[in-house]
Design a protein around this nucleic acid. Structure first.
Lengths: 196, 196
DNA sequence: GCAGGAAACGAACGATCGTGCTATCAATTC
DNA sequence: GAATTGATAGCACGATCGTTCGTTTCCTGC
């Protein structure tokens, strides 16, 4: 990796950290440069616009999220076990900057049309598709009901995670994980094949 | 209402609208003043600090949310009917500025300690208490299981709403309401007294 | 209708915002 | 090791940020 690419990665890592706390809107070139002991213009030259920085931060966060949450889960056996692995990793990522960034950026930009919002929608769709696909495999394995809607399951699972992030990060409620796991089990139970 | 109080209300209404789209962090005195055809200093004099403005916006949004979502629901018969009324009103408020503001501000400030965050936590607790109390009444009425946890129900209902706001506002998914209602019914079913 | 107080304004503050230039410095290629 | 490319710094720009101050205008209670 060339020198430029290396510092760019370092900038994106730090930017992801900051943006996960202050939101993408709270991310400023100046303070970011100060944190990294760089000049404002030197840092800026890597991105050429603030929106480009936003997009690259989202790309970096997406890669981190996939590497930390999604990819390890895909090594679990297909179907329900894989779904459980994904859920576990996701729930553990409640303090991982990349995961938090997507939650905060999604509510921050849901009313601000543009490339950033578009990217967030696309990323959400990708994750939703992964969940739905795992679910479909579970159907094929006989673990889930053929009549169940994989996309609705993905939506419901996402809701559970949003609630968990809210409960853990804003309220700091110690019951968060217990409740999230119970909700997850309820989702699985509801998706089980009807016996008879 | 005196002149000052009147314009202050007008400012808070507009500020709530703007903050619901751009977040509290995206709310600036200058642009807010321009929207209301006021001078920056004239508007600022009402609040004396930006944080005070933030807190008063939250108070205004809270009152609006209670007036639009909570209070009407309390006129429904106690127990399950009241819970359904609350859910219906809440789901309809997906495009009401005050309701959106709480969702976005909660994720925006969950990592920024201070009075604003404290206020958000308090407001969340208040709403959670209302839900839990309605649930407890439903238990007393025999509609819900004595063994069910009212606070967990409140948390789960909140998760469903967060998912609905996300799905409607970011993804603009037409299935949002259907899915939210199905999730709500599932929560109610899970809370029903066990027969036998 | 006048006095006194509240409300709004205009101008300015220092700081910081995002974004350009130009120059210097380091790294890579021959 | 010289030449070339790319990375970083310095400086400046207009704009806007939150905030203060002194003045003016409007409202209100007598």
């Amino acid at each position: 990796m060339s020198k430029g690419a290396a510092t760019r990665q370092a900038v994106l890592a730090e930017a992801t950290e900051v943006a996960s706390r202050l939101g993408l809107g709270g991310l400023t070139i100046g303070s970011l440069a100060a944190r990294l002991d760089m000049s404002k213009s030197g840092l800026f030259a890597h991105f050429r616009s603030k929106e480009a920085l936003h997009l690259q931060v989202l790309g970096y966060a997406r890669d981190a999220f996939v590497a930390e949450v999604v990819r390890p889960a895909l090594r679990a056996p297909r179907g329900e076990a894989r779904m459980r692995a994904l859920f576990d990793n996701w729930l553990e990522s409640v303090n991982v900057a990349a995961a938090c960034l997507f939650v905060s950026a999604s509510t921050e930009f849901d009313d601000q049309p543009g490339p950033v919002r578009d990217q967030l929608v696309a990323d959400h769709r990708d994750l939703s598709d992964v969940i739905a696909q795992i679910f479909r495999t579970g159907i094929a394995e006989g673990q889930f009901d053929e009549a169940a809607d994989p996309e609705r399951f993905a939506h419901d699972l996402h809701s559970v995670m949003l609630g968990a992030f809210h409960s853990r990060r804003l309220l700091n409620d110690p019951r968060t994980d217990t409740w999230a796991r119970q909700s997850f089990e309820a989702l699985l139970d509801a998706a089980r094949p009807k016996s008879g």
